[in-house]
Write a protein that binds this DNA or RNA. Structure first.
Length: 646
RNA sequence: GCCGUUGUAGCUCAGUGGUAGAGCACUUCCUUGGUAAGGAAGAGGUCGAGAGUUCAAUUCUCUUCAACGGCUCCA
């Protein structure tokens, strides 16, 4: 007998060779019907795989992350079966589940292409195949047999996969007429897949390398019931409504134009107000933290970018140079070199450090055309940039102060869904993507890691994401459509101080090179505002809102009083206007609501006679009649406090 | 940059091998209305751009530009 223990601590005995499914059935039929896979000693297993040893078991159902991935992975195989039946001779690369929902399969269609109509037909095929309730059958196979099998099939992709697999560790999975090289696990049978949606078709380089052939990737998602699929589709629709590109247009935040160029944002009056509020916040905060503000040009000569390392490392993402008087000038892709020159303009002693230079710097980056994305990925951006020059002993407290600044900002904006990422270099890319100082990388990476640990900030470590000049902490956020972006960044630079020959005189009257911190807690205006629009679903807090109050007279009989109210609002520094159109109040309210203007002041006879206003909060309806002065007190406080409540 | 999709009025979108339509927005008039769309009339587009096929192209073909979905990339 084998001992099987459960998450609640219970232990039961079973015959060796019992499967997780048998065990589930011995507990309850309902459980057996619900589960998709099992975790056996921490590994996800097929439910029908026999267990021969004492094991800790946990059943995985749809509400489990691993249950979902297993389900989606199995659906990918189901899709492959349907595709192979419809397009004989196609070859499959890999078909994994996706973390944030669904699955894909990369396919070599052999010159054919798949259309939207094909997807609809494949969905029908898949539903029919699912209905057959074919079991997913696992078969362990020797490497030699596997190679023979796929050689006969002429499947160079699976043979390629096999190269990196160890003999004795190779399994095939089959369901219906489809067999795939796969480590599994899978759900018991296709009948569990009740609803499938194939969402899109895309190209994807084989092994993710753009030098390789491009395969066709088909994305899909599936659910154990039609209802859940419908809910998912509704959720997608909702997400689209808060897409910053849609809101940006509806709210008059920004525009782009073919004549201006790709990825070049023009901020409209409403967007500019947001920018100015953000800059005001940044200037206050940085002023308090001892930063000096500077302003630098948008271009510089080639030589500076050779010194900085930008040209050797990042020439591809800089705009090509313009030539003047026989000199090459580049649009700047970073502000740091200019700031270094300001540092170097006057001799520094240790008494001058930390020396902090801040600028909302405009930089230009030649992003690949296919990568541009609304406000989130653009070619001209305005960075909340600053560089801190400090001694080694000051580094930790400076770096930590920057982190504290992040957290302060995030609290103001109510940002809580982000991932702090410690971005490290890759040793094999030293001298290619990263400056070649292995010992400095090691030292500074440890230093940054320690700051995070000491500050009790949860973080993930990722290789090969560092800046070319040093490790960094990135704050990763997700757009409503699920794309990941670095919102803010806090970077160590042990390299440029040397390349620019920056120095300071130490207390011992010696010369030393400062460490540099590059930081951008508010990222760039473009990405940050794009993020905020989605974060707030367009309902910006009052202090940030381009229009804060709309005065809505019931009819033009009350226009004079409305103007008095407007005058008081403006005198108090509130951004307000009157809807003086000849429209009914219902329509004025509807349009103001749609513009996400936080406060509406409805004014009619009663309000006029009593010196009051009827307040309506955006999204919340009528919230009562108050004296104009009382309203002013409330809104002024909300603005001054940069209140995030509504 | 690569694969795929799309491009018609300010916006959202119909439509056709015989030089275009709706709703909203806009303008004017009527209406002076109390918490999410009052009524009427009017104006507005060389159908992304260029070339080709055709008696005739917004429609078919090619090129190009841009947007979108991915891939690659992202200091």
């Amino acid at each position: 007998m084998i001992k099987v223990s459960f998450p609640d601590g219970a232990v039961r005995e079973y015959d060796p060779g019992t499967s997780s499914m048998d065990i589930a059935r011995s507990i309850s039929e309902g459980l057996a019907r619900r589960i998709l896979a099992a975790s056996v000693n921490g590994q996800v297993w097929d439910l029908n795989r026999p267990i021969y040893e004492d094991s800790a078991i946990k059943f995985l159902a749809w509400d489990d992350k691993d249950g979902k991935s297993t389900f989606w992975h199995s659906t990918a195989h189901l899709m492959a079966e349907a595709i192979e039946a419809r397009f004989p001779g196609v070859k499959f690369w890999v078909g994994p589940p996706i973390d944030n929902g669904g699955f894909y399969y990369d396919i070599d269609l052999g010159g054919r292409s798949i259309t939207e109509e094909d997807l609809r037909a494949l969905e029908t095929d898949m539903a029919a195949l699912a209905k057959k309730n074919n079991p997913y059958v696992r078969k362990a196979i020797s490497k030699a047999d596997a190679v023979a099998y796929f050689t006969e099939k002429g499947d160079e992709y699976k043979l390629d996969l096999l190269q990196n697999l160890e003999d004795g560790n190779i399994t095939l999975y089959s369901q219906g007429n489809f067999t795939d090289l796969c480590r599994g696990p899978h759900i018991p049978s296709t009948g569990l897949i009740k609803a499938v949606k194939l969402t899109n078709i895309a190209g994807a380089y084989w092994k993710g390398d753009e030098k390789n052939k491009q395969l066709t990737r088909v994305y899909g998602i599936s659910f154990p019931s039609q209802k859940e699929l419908d809910e998912y589709l509704t959720l997608l629709e909702e997400a689209k409504k808060r897409d910053h590109r849609k809101l940006g247009k509806e709210l008059g935040i920004y525009t782009m134009d073919d004549d201006v160029g790709q990825g070049l944002i023009m901020w409209m009056p409403n967007g500019t107000i947001i920018i100015e509020e953000l800059e005001k916040l940044a200037k206050e905060t940085e002023g308090d933290a001892g930063y000096h503000r500077v302003v630098t040009p948008h271009i510089a000569k080639e030589n500076m970018y050779l010194t900085s390392g930008h040209l050797p490392y990042y020439a591809d993402s800089m705009y090509p140079p313009m030539e003047l008087d026989g000199e090459k000038y580049y649009l700047k892709s970073m502000n740091c070199p200019h700031h270094h020159k300001i540092y170097a303009a006057e001799p520094k002693s240790y008494r001058d450090l930390p020396y902090r230079l801040a600028e909302y710097g405009t930089v230009y980056r030649y992003e690949q055309s296919g990568e541009l994305f609304g406000l989130m990925r653009v070619r001209c951006l305005h960075m909340n940039d600053a560089h801190i020059y400090c001694t080694k002993s000051q580094f930790e407290s400076e770096f930590r102060a920057v982190n504290d600044m992040y957290l302060k900002y995030f609290k103001i904006f109510g940002i809580d869904k982000y991932v702090m990422r410690l971005s490290l270099h890759s040793p094999e890319k030293l001298g290619i993507k990263y400056v070649n100082h292995p010992e400095l990388w090691k030292e500074t990476e440890e230093m940054v890691r320690q700051v995070l640990i000491d500050s009790n900030i949860p973080f993930v470590e990722v290789q090969d994401e560092a800046a070319f000049y040093g490790p960094k902490i990135d704050v990763q956020i997700f757009s409503v459509i699920g794309r990941e972006f670095t919102l803010a960044t806090n970077q160590v630079d042990f390299s440029q101080g040397r390349s620019f020959k920056l120095e300071y005189t130490t207390a011992e009257n010696e010369t030393d090179v400062p460490l540099i911190i590059h930081r951008a807690p508010l990222g760039t205006h473009e990405r940050f505002i794009g993020f905020l629009l989605e974060h707030y679903a367009g309902k910006l807090p009052v202090w940030l809102s381009p229009a804060q109050v709309k005065v809505l007279p019931i009819s033009d009989k009350f226009m004079d009083y409305a103007k008095v109210v407007l005058g008081k609002l403006k005198a108090a520094g509130v951004r307000a206007s009157i809807d003086d159109r000849n429209e009914k109040i219902g329509k004025k309210i509807r349009e103001t609501e749609l513009q996400r203007i936080p406060y509406m002041l409805v004014i009619g006879e009663k309000e006029m006679n009593e010196g009051k206003v009827a307040v309506r909060r955006q999204g919340k309806g009528d919230s009562g009649v108050v004296l104009v002065e009382d309203f002013l007190t409330v809104i002024s406080r909300e603005i001054t406090n940069r209140s995030n409540e509504d």
